[in-house]
Amino acid sequence: MELPELIQRIETRRHEAARPIVVGVSGYGGSGKSTLTRQLVARLPGAVRIRGDDFLDPTRSHKRSSDWDGVERLRLVSEVLTPVREGRSSVFRRYDWGRGELGVAERLPYAEVLIVDLIGLFHPDALPSIDLSIWCDLDLETSAQRGIDRDAGMGRIHDRLWRDVWLPNERDFEDQFSPRTRADVVYPMSD
């Protein structure tokens, strides 16, 4: 599948729903979720991106868990996904990484298509609130190396976290929830 075909699939889903829709983009850390999401938002009229990193708990996301416990899916669903799908206004709070706490409440922007990219998104707590799920299909080892390289390029050396926490979390989540098979679209990512 190429990008124009994916965009058409989203447009079709939006017209079928006759209401605002939520598109979830997930994949392993480093697989290209944010890149794909930015490309989609740039090409889809009325699309808005919500960064999944705004819904991570920094303490829990740096610890081992079998279900990516540090992903605050219930907060994402209640503050963002449900209000968008219901076409109502809401406020949400991004995690302020600089201050180490939730930021001030801000108005949820209106979106005809809301696209959220996040690890561990295809979980039973969030999937019912997603109208179209897209899996960024790149193998775990390549994704992780890209993530490690990206972090190093920003001066963040997270090698131990990748090796001891994030890669095992990815494997456990995959074993428990099979996110790739739950996706409506498996989108090939280049390595």
Rank of each mutant, 00 (worst) to 15 (best):
L102S: 10
R49G: 06
Q39T: 01
V186E: 07
G98S: 14
V116T: 15
A111S: 07
P179D: 05
V185L: 04
G30A: 10
F173L: 11
G103T: 12
D54Y: 12
D117R: 03
G29R: 03
D191R: 15
R156V: 12
G46M: 00
D139E: 14
I7D: 00
L140A: 03
G155C: 04
L36E: 12
T35D: 09
V113A: 01
R49Y: 07
W68A: 15
L56E: 12
E174V: 15
D57S: 00
D96L: 10
R156D: 09
D151V: 04
E11N: 11
L121Y: 08
L138F: 04
R85I: 00
S26E: 12
E72R: 14
C136L: 08
R43E: 14
A183N: 05
R94Q: 13
R107T: 13
R156S: 08
G32P: 14
V22F: 01
G147C: 10
R73E: 11
P179A: 03
P109C: 03
E5M: 02
F92P: 07
Y187C: 00
P58W: 13
D69Y: 10
H123F: 08
S190E: 08
I50K: 06
E79D: 08
D184N: 14
L161W: 06
R60D: 06
G70L: 08
R150G: 00
D96A: 09
R171T: 12
R43W: 02
W162D: 00
P179Q: 02
R14S: 03
V104K: 13
R60M: 06
E141C: 02
E86K: 11
V41K: 03
L138A: 09
Y95P: 14
I157G: 00
D131F: 01
R146M: 07
T82D: 11
V23N: 05
R171N: 02
P83W: 01
L140N: 01
L140R: 02
D125T: 12
I10P: 01
E174P: 06
R9K: 13
L36S: 13
D139Q: 06
R9C: 01
H123T: 04
R19V: 07
P109H: 07
D125M: 09
T35M: 11
F55A: 03
H15D: 14
D67M: 13
S31A: 15
R85T: 00
D131H: 04
G70T: 04
W166K: 01
L56M: 14
R9H: 02
S89P: 11
D131G: 05
A144R: 15
W68I: 14
V113H: 02
G46F: 00
D57A: 00
P168G: 07
R163W: 05
M189C: 10
I21L: 09
E141V: 11
L118S: 06
V48M: 07
P128Y: 09
R171K: 11
V41A: 02
D57Q: 00
L76V: 05
G32D: 09
S26L: 07
R88Q: 04
W68G: 10
D164N: 14
G98W: 05
P179N: 03
E86N: 12
Q8N: 12
V80W: 11
Y187F: 12
V77L: 04
D69E: 13
R150I: 02
S65G: 12
